[in-house]
Nucleic acid binder design. Sequence first.
DNA 1: ATTCACGATGAGAATCGTTGTCAAATGTGG
DNA 2: CCACATTTGACAACGATTCTCATCGTGAAT
Lengths: 154, 154
Amino acid sequence: MTGQAGTARRPTRQRAAIARALSGSAEFRSAQEIHADLAGSGTRVGLATVYRNLQAMATDGEVDVIRSPDGESVYRSCSTDHHHHVVCRSCGLAVEVTGDAVERWAEAVAAAHGFTQVRHTMEMEGLCPACTSSRQRGTVVRRPTQAPRRVVDG
Amino acid sequence: MTGQAGTARRPTRQRAAIARALSGSAEFRSAQEIHADLAGSGTRVGLATVYRNLQAMATDGEVDVIRSPDGESVYRSCSTDHHHHVVCRSCGLAVEVTGDAVERWAEAVAAAHGFTQVRHTMEMEGLCPACTSSRQRGTVVRRPTQAPRRVVDG
DNA sequence: ATTCACGATGAGAATCGTTGTCAAATGTGG
DNA sequence: CCACATTTGACAACGATTCTCATCGTGAAT
């Protein structure tokens, strides 16, 4: 189990490298990706160490974690730009959305229960316009292989 | 990948059993749990088949899927009671919350992008009242073993 | 500065949920 | 009822994550 106590965590070269790698990107990255990045930039860090530190940082609230559709845990440093996605479950089209409404709601609800330092993740999925009309016409052209195009939205 | 075509899916004893097992509970259940349940009730279905069907049903939008913190995919039939959670990342206390605000927001945003048949999941985590005050006093009494108490809220 | 105690690390094995393979069984259209 | 494509099931294969344990590094005490 991840040894964690009341004592402060000990600063190490590896921990710093991981934190740096994480803050370098606004995207969610997997432990393996981060490990590969570090290796690529000449920083030698054990894979297990990457996992342990990411977990620890998540526990301490320094990073956000969500599970990618593939089942990998993906991490992102907290302060980065916050947004959500709507993903088409047929073709994989992903649209980025932001909205103060949810943010405020989440905070309000959490606060109502006395929770502090609250973070949240939200995932929405449905059928995109194209796939919707395909199905209405009965011509289900499902695409097994997801080719997640990405469309950013204001 | 899971072979899926434009043709309608073929009804089978196994598929029916899985659907029944799923609709029997309002909770998210893992493929393995469902498989065990079926086996327990005398219905013999291969594990791979359970996985395949759950995936197919998810693709068709018949069930919701999310990843449990343990990394398992957990499924729930769509029509069941919809709510969210706020989980304490220190002690694991979980509070159920519901809110029309998010539901409406999610629908509105998705609709704005032309998406249909939209479903969503949302996860919130922070520090519960108890853990918040512990930390303020500097006495961090972190509990490594999560004992997720559950508190339902209106 | 040197020593100590203990958390942190790394390499590889072990775990375990999930997916792939392929022959046999089953549902459908004709 | 027949031919055929889909589905199933048993088991191997995969891959992300966790565990193990000897060794190393850090902060605190001396």
